[in-house]
Write a protein that binds this DNA or RNA. Structure first.
Lengths: 199, 199
DNA sequence: GGGTATGTCTACCAAATGGTAGACAGATCC
DNA sequence: GGATCTGTCTACCATTTGGTAGACATACCC
């Protein structure tokens, strides 16, 4: 068969990412992914030995992108700790805004059993640890309100992923998952964090 | 057959709640639920006409319990607005602390398509609206820091659903999704809110 | 041009799953 | 005591799904 513009493997990965994110790994069959790509199921199984392997590959992609984007923000130099926190928050939102399915996949990663859940954890862990160390450092310097830095990180993480993964649920409060709505919420989170962490 | 101590229907509902919460609605079969209860699949289908109906019944239970508990806290009389917020936060966490599967079910409610997702939204919406009105009132009185009350509610909501959605991910910071872990996180959230909302 | 590798397809399959039909035992009503 | 109702069971079915075997065509290597 003639090679189409995008290699088949990549197109399968793309379609799987969107479908898995939208409706969950369990609810999407290989047949459906194949149909989306315009190919037969067996072709999917040619590129990925099993569904598990395809799922793994998709989650790997997601974890990698998240880590790259957030890592860049964490490393960004700024003297003001609140400014740095703000940048990380922005970074966390970015992949989700660009590709809505990302949200669903993060949720899936936490729902799936065993090694697939570990994937995100193992990738994100070093980042979170670095954040915690940084919080501790700034608290010691008296530039952030003293608190349990691990719990602060957990809270911030939960808040951001909550916004990211449940944008529909937030409609309850009249919030709209648009770019403008996202900016408002992000800014509110910023001043919230500012009020909460200012010594 | 002799009636056992707990009516079969209730025992099915119980087992389904725990299993659905732990591993997701799609990944749990009727056979597995039946096995857990010590009964045949057909008995499950006798009490619930279809799997969908069982899922609905479970989600209904969850939504109802959440609403009852939170509603009681929202209505609770206390003059200090921060104290009232405290109580609501405790109330939101209570079902999850008592029954860890609740977290997973909140996640499922946001993941499932159509009417099943709406169930949570429709039940929770009036509560959130009441909270928003209350925030506005207290801000007008100058007893809470002035902010967009809708966004504050959205933030708090996102935080809680984030915890619900990502309890495993929070292990990254050494946090455990146990009753003790939930209590710690809840207390941190309370002092967080206190710092952020004190005028 | 012949042989090999690559990529996609058709044709199946075994297992699991949601669901149906109907038998059967015990309790209840008359 | 017989009829009926209730709750559970055995037996079965249709469909879906992940996965295998192997044909076939095109591209590439020599």
């Amino acid at each position: 068969m003639p090679q189409r513009e995008t290699p088949t493997r990549q197109r399968i990965l793309d379609a799987a990412l969107d479908l898995f994110g939208a409706r969950g790994v369990d609810a999407v069959s290989l047949d459906e992914i194949a149909r989306e790509v315009g190919v037969r199921k067996q072709t999917v199984l040619y590129w990925f030995a099993s569904k598990d392997e395809l799922v793994d590959a998709v989650l790997e992609t997601v974890a990698a992108e998240l880590v790259v984007v957030i890592d860049a923000a964490v490393r960004s130099a700024s003297d003001d700790p609140l400014e740095r926190i703000d940048r990380v928050v922005r970074a966390v939102f970015r992949p989700a805004v660009r590709r809505p399915a990302m949200l669903g996949l993060v949720r899936e990663m936490n729902r799936l059993p065993g090694p697939q859940a570990d994937r995100l954890r193992l990738n994100v862990q070093p980042l979170v640890e670095r954040c915690v160390e940084y919080f501790q450092l700034e608290m010691d310097k008296g530039r952030l309100r003293r608190a349990d830095p691990g719990l602060i990180a957990a809270l911030a993480y939960a808040t951001v992923t909550g916004i990211a993964t449940e944008p529909e649920a937030l409609r309850s409060v009249g919030w709209q998952p648009t770019a403008v709505g996202l900016r408002h919420l992000r800014d509110e989170l910023r001043s919230f964090l500012r009020a909460a962490l200012t010594p």
